[in-house]
Design a protein around this nucleic acid. Structure first.
Lengths: 204, 204
DNA sequence: CGCGCATTTGAATCTCAATTCAACAATATC
DNA sequence: GATATTGTTGAATTGAGATTCAAATGCGCG
């Protein structure tokens, strides 16, 4: 038998297994057995912890978003210079390649969000948090005089998140000319226009 | 029995039924019986025309995209003034509300495009066509001197399509403050920045 | 140690959608 | 108007995945 675990540990495992299974099989096409297999358990054990599969899927999506957001914050955490911070943040919002797990999961959710209120709310909340994150960077840069904002910070923030989203989809769908690098450059291009800062990859 | 129809007519009906069924139940969660019911037939009849369901779904997605794209072209067709044409085109790329069928179907596809090459290609192709559409408008406006482009037309076109995409998702997911109107205004805001044209709703 | 509870299995069962197909009905063909 | 062809049904079958549950197993604890 598989290593026996405490309730909390096992639930954490299952959330992670569900996340990975959804990336492979789709947010809605995923099957109980696939999640069980990912976790190295039988379907009965999964059901023991989550009698309603939907609860597990929601928790898994929630966890995936939290992980995605936290990672972005962490990557930009130590950077004081607003220009460098903005560049780093933009990079962290785009997939590293077509198989990037974090972005793939978010993409899976897009369609379901139109039919499912819970998923819609989840995605909407993430969007707003990311906008706030950008606003903070933009306002700081403006206050320091390194950014000359071409509009209010909320609008620019929204556009940055929107562009990331959309180009993330392109990368994941394997657009022939919009790969991970090109996507970064496209978003950076808008950021330059909106901040009046050259945002060179390695600013002095 | 339901009215009997020719092969071609019935297939057209089924494509439309599949499109509507997918919008209601999801691109991947849709069932044969739901499509049959939408078409007013039994599952056997559907299978008679499409032994492999996937073929029907692909054709339905293809038709949905074609319809979406053609509609955009048609709405802007008679307009000579580049500024008005750009405004109209932007409007036509965004959903009219959270239940907009055209955009809903495209959103459904986003997640699947990462796992399914056919869907990925379909979406990528649509993206590129829309970019070309915008490029033509931008270039015309620049040639006439009414637009002062803040970058090359391809980049601006890509950003316009990307913003439409992303805000379309927000509207469909019922974002509390980004409704259909706000989405139009956000994309227009970028278009103003990129073209240097005020793009007022009713230009003289 | 041994009791008792929590976790997991595996097999049996249930459920529901896909699939098959013989029979039937509408339409076309001559 | 007879016959062939095409489209459709409805009922039977199959199959895959969800669900249930008694039994087995590991673990904490007195």
């Amino acid at each position: 038998m598989t290593q026996r675990k405490s309730r909390a540990d096992r639930r954490a495992d299952l959330i992670d297994a569900a996340r990975r299974a959804m990336i492979r099989h789709g947010a809605e096409g995923v099957h109980l057995n696939q999640i069980a297999e990912m976790a190295g358990l039988t379907s009965g054990a999964v059901l023991y912890h989550y009698p309603d599969l939907r609860d597990l899927l929601i928790e898994a999506h929630h966890a995936g978003m939290e992980r995605f957001y936290e990672q972005r914050i962490r990557k930009a955490a130590g950077i004081a210079d607003p220009a460098r911070k903005l560049i780093t943040t933009i990079r962290s919002g785009l997939p590293e390649g077509p198989d990037d797990a974090g972005v793939r999961l978010l993409c899976e959710l897009g369609g379901a969000a139109g039919r499912n209120r819970v998923y819609g709310t989840l995605l909407t909340t993430l969007f707003d948090r990311q906008v706030s994150m950008y606003q903070a960077i933009l306002e700081t840069g403006a206050a320091q005089g390194v950014f000359t904002l071409a509009g209010d910070s909320e609008t620019i923030g929204r556009n940055l998140v929107a562009l990331e989203d959309a180009y993330g989809y392109r990368v994941v769908a394997r657009h022939h000319s919009i790969d991970a690098e090109a996507a970064v450059e496209l978003v950076l291009g808008y950021a330059r226009l909106a901040t009046g800062n050259p945002l060179t990859p390695i600013p002095r």
